[in-house]
């Protein structure tokens, strides 16, 4: 066996934050372009990461390119800090980037998320990194990248309007529940990633920087702070979000996004906050 590969120790063979400096520079340049052209998908030379595609490799690459020893990282999946993939990604960065981690939204400088925007309002200086499976909002209407690129270049978004309108004609309302398309700064149509439409209003004019990373599709896009983000709708069918008649069984919140759980064989339901940090903060505040 050649001894050129140090296969015994897994960490020392890798650079700070896993990516080599050349790769970080390439991603950093893509991020700057993404911020300069809000909502536009910048192609980048995405790398294989040690986690599978579809499991947050785009978000991980973005986080790895921005994170430093001064940061405090929070990772959520479905709003929760303790879901297995969130745990796995948090462990990865604690290991390769020697970074402090937290579950508290307000303490975090970088928050990597899959499918949710935290309920606690974000502050200026925080960066929210989204994991994106399919960055192209028009992909399910037009599978070809060459076509969708042209549609974005021409601001030709009629197809999406038609698709939403068909939904109204058929169901009397827009039936799209998550990954609900938005228009960024009046120019680019953007996929907000598969967040529930409940979270769409939080993207609008947010004080934090939003970075979106799609690893398998090799695209990065961004919404700078204080940027208008409008969910598509019609004058006679304005955008609306999900509501529940129940409240959270743990903290009593009526305002947060609720997860539904089946608690017995008869199908009895229980509703709790999807954002575990928000829920715990509220429970703690209630204690005397």
């Amino acid at each position: 066996m050649p001894d050129t590969h140090d296969t015994s120790s897994s960490d020392s063979a890798y650079n700070y934050a896993y990516l080599d400096e050349q790769t970080k520079r390439m991603i950093r340049r893509a991020i700057l372009k993404a911020v300069a052209v809000p909502g536009y998908q910048v192609p980048f030379g995405g790398r294989e990461m040690p986690l599978p595609y579809g499991w947050g490799t785009g978000g991980i690459q973005v986080t790895a390119a921005i994170i430093g020893r001064d940061d405090t990282l929070k990772v959520i999946d479905q709003g929760a800090d303790d879901t297995t993939n969130a745990v796995s990604i948090r462990r990865f960065f604690a290991k390769v980037a020697d970074v402090a981690t937290t579950t508290r939204t307000e303490e975090a400088t970088v928050i990597q998320t899959r499918h949710r925007v935290p309920e606690t309002p974000l502050k200026e200086g925080q960066i929210l990194v989204f994991q994106v499976p399919i960055p192209e909002p028009l992909r399910m209407l037009e599978p070809r990248e060459t076509e969708t690129r042209t549609l974005h270049a021409l601001t030709e978004y009629g197809g999406m309007q038609v698709s939403l309108y068909e939904s109204i004609a058929r169901h009397g309302r827009i039936s799209k529940a998550y990954n609900y398309p938005v228009l960024v700064n009046g120019r680019y149509m953007m996929s907000p990633s598969p967040i529930p439409k409940f979270d769409n209003p939080k993207l609008d004019n947010n004080a934090a920087l939003q970075l979106y990373g799609a690893g398998r599709e090799k695209r990065i896009y961004a919404v700078p702070p204080y940027t208008p983000v409008k969910s598509l709708d019609f004058d006679d069918h304005p955008f609306e979000i999900e509501t529940w008649s129940e409240c959270c069984a743990l903290c009593g919140s009526k305002e947060s996004f609720l997860d539904e759980m089946i608690v017995d064989d008869d199908g009895k339901r229980l509703f709790v906050c999807s954002d575990t940090d928000y829920c715990q903060e509220r429970q703690q505040a209630d204690k005397p």
């Binding site: 700070y16 934050a17 970080k24 700057l32 911020v35 921005i66 430093g68 920087l209």
Partner: peptide
């Protein structure tokens, strides 16, 4: 590595 990271964050 760390200087570039900190400068990048200020540029960002």
């Amino acid at each position: 590595s760390h200087d570039a990271q900190r400068v990048f964050r200020s540029v960002l």
